[in-house]
């Protein structure tokens, strides 16, 4: 099984060429290997370092431009480290119908966090996501891979406090 790791609060590892090469070598035999490898690199380092691009191009016999184009196409692949915790707020229609934008406003007013932001201490990143498939229990969110339904302001406050107060 490749990918779909639940993110934990451990600090992502520093980029390391040897470990990156190991990840690539382990998966390069797959048909259409680039996405599985990018997921695995994201898991290993918390993001896809630009230094991995030539390694990928060489291993898969494609151009660096192809690798860059693929990384930049997908919302999941980040090119810089994210916060230790990642909160994805769903802002698609079913969640809009249940007031997700009020939660976004609350996050901005109370915690000075907008989707796309990471707290200064790198504790928490907040992202917009369009649909988590929990549309009957909206507003929905996902914290470090765990799905949350019927999210409300109190819960949101607690998530921010727990994430930013937690030292790991």
């Amino acid at each position: 099984m490749v990918g779909a790791h639940t993110k934990t609060s451990e600090m992502p590892a520093e980029f390391d060429e040897i470990r990156a090469r190991l990840v690539i070598a382990r998966l390069a035999h797959l048909e259409g290997a680039l996405l599985p490898i990018l997921h695995e690199l994201s898991h290993e380092f918390g993001y896809v370092d630009v230094r991995a691009v030539p390694l990928l191009a060489e291993a898969l016999n494609i151009s660096r431009a192809d690798v860059h184009g693929t990384i930049s196409f997908y919302h999941d692949f980040k090119t810089s480290p994210q916060g230790r915790h990642v909160l994805k707020l769903c802002r698609a229609e079913a969640c809009q119908a249940m007031g997700c934008e009020t939660l976004v406003t609350h996050l901005a007013k109370t915690h000075h966090l907008a989707p796309g932001d990471t707290t200064q201490d790198q504790a928490l990143s907040v992202e917009t996501v369009y649909c988590l498939g929990n549309c009957a229990l909206s507003p929905a969110a996902m914290l470090d891979g765990a799905l949350i339904g019927r999210l409300d302001q109190d819960q949101l406050d607690q998530i921010v406090l727990d994430a930013t107060g937690m030292r790991s």
């Binding site: 599985p36 192809d66 693929t70 196409f73 919302h75 999941d76």
Partner: peptide, 24 residues
């Protein structure tokens, strides 16, 4: 296989490109 957060990959030909390891 796991997608990577692109809505368009639900379109069948984009999905195929994505499976091939390309931009969707």
């Amino acid at each position: 296989r796991l997608g990577a957060g692109a809505y368009i990959c639900g379109e069948e030909t984009s999905l195929l490109d994505s499976l091939e390891g390309k931009r969707g």
